[in-house]
Simulated scan of single mutants.
Amino acid sequence: MDSLQIAVFSLVVLALVVYRQMRTRPAAGRGLLVFGLILTGAGVYGGGLLEESPSVLGVAVIAVEAVMAVAFGALRAWTVRVWREADGVAWARGTAWTLAAWAVSFAARLALFAAGGALGLTYRPAAALVFAGLTVAAQAVLVARRGRMLGEAVPAWVPASQPAGRDR
């Protein structure tokens, strides 16, 4: 794929992911995790992630992109509403804060892209797919984890340092 096709594909994917996150869905679903991993794999497989002779700066920018992707995924996971119904199923739905976090994530990615260009790095279209995949996968893992945590029972034992009958 050329750069324009990857850019259009990335925007379409982003729109679909955001749309899906704003709808009520099972919190433990693996769909977004699998999708994120596929996007990451497509970006890595697409090549061009690193220049032919990568510079320290180029590798550093990719590392910063990866850390940013996971951090923004964690931030968005924190903004998603997660609850458990009476039947025991955990559900998740994005909030207005989730949309705001997506906007900040997108702006930060563009800023990093611009900074890389200003430093003389060439644009790597595959990096957009890797960033999208990592951020979606991180968010999916953390939302699913929050959903699972809702179902954890309170321990039946009371620690020795806490007298029986007190709130745990």
Rank of each mutant, 00 (worst) to 15 (best):
T135G: 05
V18K: 02
V154Q: 09
G36Y: 14
L50C: 07
W102S: 08
A101I: 07
A118Q: 11
Y45V: 14
D87P: 05
I6D: 03
E52T: 00
Q21G: 03
G147N: 03
P163W: 13
A144M: 02
R145M: 09
L14W: 06
A115S: 10
T40W: 15
L14F: 10
A137I: 00
P155G: 01
A71N: 04
A74N: 03
G116P: 02
A127R: 04
A77V: 01
A126P: 03
L50W: 14
R109E: 11
R166N: 07
T40M: 15
L37I: 14
P163H: 11
W102T: 06
S53A: 09
L99H: 13
G73E: 07
Y123E: 01
A160Y: 10
F9D: 01
V154H: 08
P159W: 12
S161K: 00
V18D: 03
A114Y: 10
A74E: 05
R81Q: 12
A69C: 05
A15Y: 06
A86V: 07
R84Q: 11
L110T: 10
Q21K: 06
R30N: 11
A140R: 04
R148L: 10
L14H: 04
L39S: 12
L110F: 14
F106E: 11
A126G: 04
I38Q: 14
I62E: 06
W157I: 04
R109F: 15
V130Y: 09
D87W: 12
L57Y: 01
A28Q: 08
V12R: 00
M1Y: 11
V82P: 04
A71W: 10
E65C: 02
G29C: 08
A118K: 08
L16R: 01
Y45M: 15
L37P: 04
D2C: 07
I62Y: 13
A100C: 13
T135L: 14
F113M: 12
S161H: 07
S3M: 10
A126R: 05
R93E: 13
L33M: 13
R168H: 08
L150A: 03
L49K: 08
G120C: 09
R84M: 11
W78P: 03
S161M: 07
L14S: 02
W91F: 11
T122P: 01
R84W: 09
L57K: 03
P26N: 07
A66V: 03
E51C: 02
I6N: 00
W97S: 13
D2S: 05
Q162I: 07
V130T: 01
A86P: 02
G31W: 08
L112M: 14
L119D: 06
I38E: 14
L129A: 02
L142A: 01
G47M: 09
R25A: 11
R25T: 06
L16S: 03
A164C: 00
F106N: 10
A115V: 02
F113A: 10
V13N: 03
V130A: 08
A96N: 14
T24S: 12
L112I: 10
W157V: 01
A27D: 08
L16H: 04
A164R: 07
W102H: 13
L129S: 03
R23D: 02
A153H: 02
R93G: 10
L49F: 12
A71I: 05
G133L: 00
L4H: 03
A111E: 10
E85C: 09
F9M: 03
Y19V: 00
T95A: 13
M22W: 09
A74W: 14
A100K: 13
